[in-house]
Simulated assay, not measured.
Amino acid sequence: MNLRNKVIIITGGTSGVGRQLVALLCHNNTVIVITRHTTRLTELTDAHQNIHVFSADLSDSKQYKGLAQKVQRRFPIVDVLINNAAVQNTQMFTDTNFKYETIAQEINVNFNAICSLSYLFLPNLKNANEQAIILNINSGLALVPKKSSAVYCASKAAMNIFSQSLNYQLEQTNISVLQAFLPLVDTPMTQGRGASKLSSEQAAVEIIKGLEKQIPINNIGKVKLLRVLTTLAPPLARKLLKRS
């Protein structure tokens, strides 16, 4: 796909990988950013051109329809939907500070929003003049979980299967569903966790390369090695990731 003069929706575009995607894509495209951080939205529009911002809390599923309607009134055609927004709670169910309400919130942002926005924006994507793409930003933890962040790991695994199934459903349309699987990336979400992180800038570059080439499963960085381990030595992969 030639990423010029496209209308691109990016969720979670004010920090981390999402912000880098916005910065790289906005020069030659119209970028629609969906996020709940209104102060960061102002900073984003001041820093970049060709950006249109819509504020929504994706942890609240009641906001999805209204959000889609607002976007559709201004942008009847969408070429690319990048489902990037995600949250990860590291508390375990056995921790005394675990908050029950975070379960639904995390599932909504990491999975429900992906399913819902993919459906709600289908008419816009079908209106694209050429090929349209839904790109779901996934994680190596969709392949092998770690001990903490059980809901995050499960939601990413669900995204993986959903993406493949939806791609089957859309085979006779102009829409393809792609995934980018990320290793541990240096973002605000991962502060204080892990080492040897991939920079958010490099992650965004690799995501865009996969988008341009329309790679269905784009394994980025150490996820390539994880794929090999899950095939050749599953117990070792589980051991390495368990306490990651």
Rank of each mutant, 00 (worst) to 15 (best):
M159I: 15
F121S: 01
F121R: 00
G194N: 05
N2M: 05
I32Y: 06
L21G: 13
L122E: 09
L226V: 00
G13T: 11
C115Y: 14
Q131P: 01
N110Y: 06
L178S: 05
F111N: 05
E212S: 12
F121I: 03
N136W: 09
Y168A: 02
N28S: 11
R4F: 05
L3E: 00
H27E: 14
H48I: 04
L229D: 00
H27I: 07
N136T: 08
K70E: 15
A23S: 15
V144K: 02
N219H: 11
M92Y: 00
N110V: 03
L241T: 07
L125A: 03
V205C: 06
P76A: 09
A56S: 15
F111Q: 10
L67G: 12
N160P: 00
S200A: 15
P234W: 07
L44T: 10
S176Q: 14
A180S: 15
P123L: 02
P235H: 08
G13C: 11
I51V: 14
L225M: 12
T190V: 04
G18R: 05
V185M: 07
H52T: 10
D60E: 10
I9Y: 02
R4T: 11
E212W: 04
K222N: 09
P183A: 06
R73L: 12
K242H: 11
I220L: 13
I217E: 15
A157F: 05
N97A: 10
T190S: 14
N50Y: 11
L120G: 00
